[in-house]
């Protein structure tokens, strides 16, 4: 196997929790990302799923180095981003771009589409100034926007079109890796399909590596080659997309898959549903042992004390569950 384009080694991102008014002191730690090791191959689409608060967005921001890493390393083509200087990071970000969830908040309302798309080109001096216009027009066309809209402002666009602008902005520097944090969650079904198609097509054409974050499993399954399932800062299951959805091994993944509403009314009503009790735990007071044990239908005494590691469960398949071979 060729060397991965992105390699995470035991990455941890912790946030201090402070309280007190006059004498602020740290009263706790939120381990938003708690020891993630992961490698992403060139041209691969990796889906990252999990419920709110599981740390998937923090992981995205950690890879982008938008939040300081507590421990571990993030290697982009062998370059260690966690130890990089600001100047080195600026260079590295040409290869690493991000698309955010809310296209209403992620675009500057005071910049025209042209200014939004030209900015990265000018900052990174990708092309001589006289060629910027032509590049911007080409970018807009690539994401399905006509060159007539370039002088408009974000508020004149619908959500789907704004997300196209955000995608064009991420593509401006011809990055090698794109991290898309819930890019279709704010969109209607019919618009969502358009944006998913666009992302898939761009990945094929430009040989992009994409980390696709979402909470909707059917969307993730459609676009991803591999899926990583996160629970409370850790990866609990990792494997080929179809495999993970159709044959989930970790009890949490099984519950997630079972919770996907089926379109077929008969199937929906007949299939046994695995409804989890309780809410996702608070990251402020994580459960001891396996973080999933308070909600797990297969819990044993051992699960309450021992923290399961991600172990090999088949070809390209990793699962973090103590009872993996029993259930």
């Amino acid at each position: 196997m060729s060397s991965p384009i992105l390699q995470l080694n035991d990455v941890q991102t912790h946030f201090p929790v402070e309280s007190g008014f006059l004498f602020r002191h740290q009263t706790g730690t939120v381990k938003a990302v708690d020891g993630i090791t992961l490698s992403v191959q060139r041209g691969e689409v990796l889906g990252l799923v999990g419920e709110s608060g599981c740390g998937k967005s923090t992981l995205a921001r950690t890879i982008m180095q938008l939040v300081p890493t507590t421990a571990g390393t993030v290697l982009l083509e062998g370059r260690n981003l966690t130890a990089a200087s600001a100047a080195e990071l600026l260079v590295a970000r040409r290869d690493l771009q991000m698309i955010f969830q809310d296209p209403f908040a992620s675009l500057n309302p005071r910049l025209t589409v042209y200014a939004t798309l030209a900015e990265p080109l000018l900052v990174h001096r990708v092309v001589p100034p006289e060629q910027v216009r032509a590049r911007v027009v080409a970018l807009a066309e690539k994401v399905g926007l006509s060159s007539q809209v370039l002088e408009k402002y974000p508020h004149e666009f619908s959500g789907g079109q704004r997300q196209r602008i955000a995608i064009a902005r991420a593509l401006a520097l011809e990055p090698k890796v794109i991290i898309a944090d819930e890019p279709v969650s704010a969109l209607d079904v019919s618009i969502q399909a358009q944006i998913l198609n666009l992302l898939a097509q761009l990945c094929r054409e430009m040989n992009l590596t994409l980390i696709f974050i979402a909470h909707d499993l059917s969307v993730v399954k459609h676009i991803s080659d591999r899926i990583a399932v996160m629970y409370l800062g850790k990866i609990v299951e990792l494997g080929p997309a179809t495999d993970v959805i159709e044959r989930p091994r970790h009890p949490y993944t099984q519950a997630l898959v079972s919770a996907i509403p089926q379109l077929d009314p008969d199937l929906q009503r007949s299939k046994p549903r695995l409804v989890l009790a309780g809410d996702p735990p608070s990251p402020l007071q994580p459960p001891t042992g396996c973080a999933f044990h308070p909600r797990c239908p297969h819990v044993q005494a051992e699960c309450r004390t021992t923290n399961p590691l991600l172990q090999v469960a088949g070809p390209q398949r990793n699962v973090a569950c103590l009872r993996l071979n029993e259930i």
């Binding site: 198609n197 399954k221 089926q262 379109l263």
Partner: peptide, 13 residues
């Protein structure tokens, strides 16, 4: 246009 009903790897309707 719902992803779960469509074959993987092909464009969504």
């Amino acid at each position: 246009s719902i992803p779960s009903l469509q074959p993987k790897g092909r464009d969504l309707y």
